[in-house]
Design a protein around this nucleic acid. Structure first.
Lengths: 331, 331
DNA sequence: ATGAAAGCGCTAACAA
DNA sequence: TTGTTAGCGCTTTCAT
């Protein structure tokens, strides 16, 4: 265990004070060019690396962002984290990644970990949306910016970056109408989660314009359920002429049923989904037409917001990432 | 910004010394039951949270593991990270996650970040496998255990946890032979990467036993390429009666071609792959028969190894995670 | 059983 | 331009 080089070592070697070394290393204007050079050279030579703990202890901040998500193993959060990681790296920040498993207790513990690690900021997709903000409060009180993303509290006084959930559903509905679909199976997620409610409401509203279209609304809590729902619907006497899938998870179930029943897409039936980036839609042939709600883009946006916050722009606001239609050949 | 409670605050309140408080809080045997009680209660009441930076500065260690992977957005690494996160949480450790983007320079920078953050250990899948261990050396010199996983250096004196790559290929070959497949399209990854070479060699060797089987070997650097290869092979006069896909990425391309050509699985042709966990194989109908090489399991194994190392078991060794055949209905 | 004091490595106010 | 000094919050040795 080769002892770590410290400022003291350098100062001793050069016969100057520790503070001069410290200042020289960080380009303080007071230091003479000559000294600066000298210090820099020796520091490089000795392989000096600052002790981040001492710095953090002293300055009371760190170069780490905390990210709390329900689960890492999820396309959406995955893309989000990836984007934030890319940006953070550029400004010399690292990521502390925590999974809440959708459990408010674990989430509370994760928040505590963020505090303990004195993270410079927190990006969080909440486990259970509620109006109770107390568990997040302590962070902001300590001056730690907290940016909520995707699943956010139902409260105004906080920073949020969200997907245009309603918008995505409306875009899908519009696309279906343009194709003149008349008998649509629409599969949404678990009825209790807020994103389901938002998308369902917006979708149905947008569909109202087309009174004569027959709409079958279903809820699937898993890919498996969506498989079953789709199978049943297409085994019925009158087959739907289009399926709308609210998410990738649902889409995968539906597509499995399509394969099983050997349904020809888009001739027998059209498919449209709301998907995170292009991964799942591109898995199939023909490729799926989908409304993109990009975790990756949202990550970039969240990073922007937290950067702004840290550089002093401390107002609260909600940023919305627009959705867009990506044409495949499935509709 | 409500000021953080420190040991000093507690000691002042109780009119005892800081050291007594410190000791009481961590259950030092010297402290009287009475004092301990008193301190504990007040600490809880005041919402005391130790300053991890001060602790780390003092003790020169942290409660953070560093994980360096080529990319987070990859099933395999994803599962791996997930598993390590779960285990780490149990012992109060967090994860610093870094992406190398397969760039040795970025990797070096990531390693530096791990050192700077005084991580308690590093789990790394290397960007470019070589015999040059110097860039990893400094960590171990500082007493930081480093566990290589999946893509590991070609050197004995280090700790590795690996998948049974050869074994997986052999299992696949055996399964194909059992089904009496005679005309097999085997698609491997990019010829330069080591895992391709290992799997290819093992697969071909295992296939040798069945001289009369016709083997078409192909290499695909992407899902798209595997799609093209499969399409071409099945458009030829004599169709293969089975396809072996070396990875999930390749499998997705192959399956897209299957859908395009409306090939019936397993009647027209059988499919078998080497896959990470069950996600991709379960996307299709029928579900794909695959050899499982689990990133999740590997994560658990890596965590075990690093725990062992930290509790004093400091020998070098290579741990191999066995592969196993998971039967779907595609072969 | 408790306290005093030193010091981990660094920054920054103040002095010179 | 440089040095001195006083901490940041904690652990730990050495006294008591």
């Amino acid at each position: 265990m080769s002892a770590k080089i410290t400022l003291k070592d350098i100062s001793r070697n050069l016969n100057i004070s520790i503070s001069t070394v410290s200042r020289a290393l960080k380009g303080h204007p007071d230091i003479s060019e000559e000294t600066r050079e000298k210090v820099m050279r020796l520091a490089a030579l000795m392989d000096y690396e600052p002790n981040t703990y001492a710095i953090s202890l002293r300055t009371n901040k760190s170069n780490i962002f905390g990210i709390i998500v329900p689960e890492i193993s999820n396309f959406f959060y995955h893309s989000f984290i990836s984007a934030v990681e890319e940006e953070s790296k550029k400004i010399g920040f690292s990521l502390l990644i925590l999974q809440s498993g959708n459990d408010p207790l674990v989430e509370a513990e994760n928040i505590r970990l963020c505090r303990l690690n004195r993270v410079a900021g927190v990006l969080i997709s909440v486990a259970a949306s509620s109006k109770d903000m107390s568990r997040y409060q302590k962070l902001e009180e300590n001056g730690v910016p907290i940016i909520f993303f995707d699943k956010v509290p139902d409260v105004d006084a906080c920073n949020k970056v969200c997907l245009a959930d309603e918008d995505a559903a409306v875009l899908a509905a519009t696309a279906l109408q343009k194709k003149g679909k008349q008998h649509i199976l629409a599969i949404f997620g678990h009825p209790d989660i807020s994103i389901t409610q938002k998308r369902k409401l917006a979708f149905i509203n947008a569909m109202e314009k087309n009174k004569q279209a027959k709409l079958i609304i279903a809820h699937a809590g898993s890919s498996r359920e969506s498989f079953e729902i789709t199978k049943t619907a297409f085994l019925a006497s009158q087959q739907p002429d289009a399926v709308f899938c609210m998410s990738d998870e649902i889409l995968t179930g539906t597509m499995k049923a399509m394969q099983l029943l050997k349904i020809n897409i888009p001739n027998d039936t059209g498919i449209i989904s709301i998907s995170n980036d292009d991964f799942i839609p591109h898995l199939y042939e023909p490729e799926i037409t989908y409304i993109e709600t990009s975790g990756y883009q949202l990550g970039k946006l969240a990073f922007e917001r937290i950067s702004d916050y840290m550089s002093g722009k401390k107002f609260y606001r909600e940023l919305i990432l627009p959705s867009k239609l990506v044409e495949g050949n499935s509709l």
